[in-house]
Design a protein around this nucleic acid. Sequence first.
DNA 1: AATTTGACTTAGAATAATTCTAAACGATCT
DNA 2: AGATCGTTTAGAATTATTCTAAGTCAAATT
Lengths: 145, 145
Amino acid sequence: MNSLKQMDRGALSDALDHSGQRTTPQRETVFSVLLDERDHPTADEVYTRTKSRMPTISMATVYNCLETLVSCGLVKQVNIEREPTRYCPNLAPHAHFHCRDTGRVYDVPVPPDMMHELAEVLPGEYRADSVELVFRGHLAKGKTK
Amino acid sequence: MNSLKQMDRGALSDALDHSGQRTTPQRETVFSVLLDERDHPTADEVYTRTKSRMPTISMATVYNCLETLVSCGLVKQVNIEREPTRYCPNLAPHAHFHCRDTGRVYDVPVPPDMMHELAEVLPGEYRADSVELVFRGHLAKGKTK
DNA sequence: AATTTGACTTAGAATAATTCTAAACGATCT
DNA sequence: AGATCGTTTAGAATTATTCTAAGTCAAATT
């Protein structure tokens, strides 16, 4: 038993079914870890958190599960500056803000029309299927959030 | 003797001086390699190209030189999807397009007003000093460019 | 119910980009 | 010439991630 809500459990097995993969306890637990704390954890952090709920899970399985979740579209990878890959279950279009002081990554909502405008800077021969937008800098003091 | 033009040679020694670092043959040669072929090479590719002009240079020195050029602001690192870091001497604000077929990276000019608009999607507590914009997809066929 | 199948999990080894270390180098200053 | 100090060098070390090969498990087939 993990902490997935019925809704999320359904989304998970639907997405897995749809891509011809199985719903397993390991995948459910890793997914619940991502949903429970949306701080863009690294694979290592996911491993630690998952292990506390399922002590027998291995690092390789965590990597496998994350890759599976990415492949079926439930989770996105966030790569910033050669740091370890982070994982993000936020499927809405959004940008990221990377704080130079803490290394933390925050989601920044992006209005849909901005996405459209962005698409227009691309010359015609480029057909983009994904856009990645990362800001880097500092948080105004007092707002550690 | 490397293939740096006077203008670029000047920019290099100015930037190095300004950040308290020396102009060395290795740094000049690495910089000229970057300027001569602007295809966003990896450190390894820079190493190969530099070695053909200066056979005694080592990989570590190439990494050191690239780091130096980045630190004095003449070169930008381009990180895409955990692939090896690429190096780009294009200082104008621009985005990148990453072709899924060939792995190649292209510069995409971004109009200044677009940069301003982007800055505005950031909530007030975020102070960004850099913006990174990467498109991924395919090139329209026939335009291998 | 036993067997087969194939996807999944596991521990540990392997990989590869990058960084580190310690010694050697070389230009400049005394 | 000797001292200083930033730079270069070869090779070792690091580390996130992937690979390998054996073991597990559940569902499908006999």
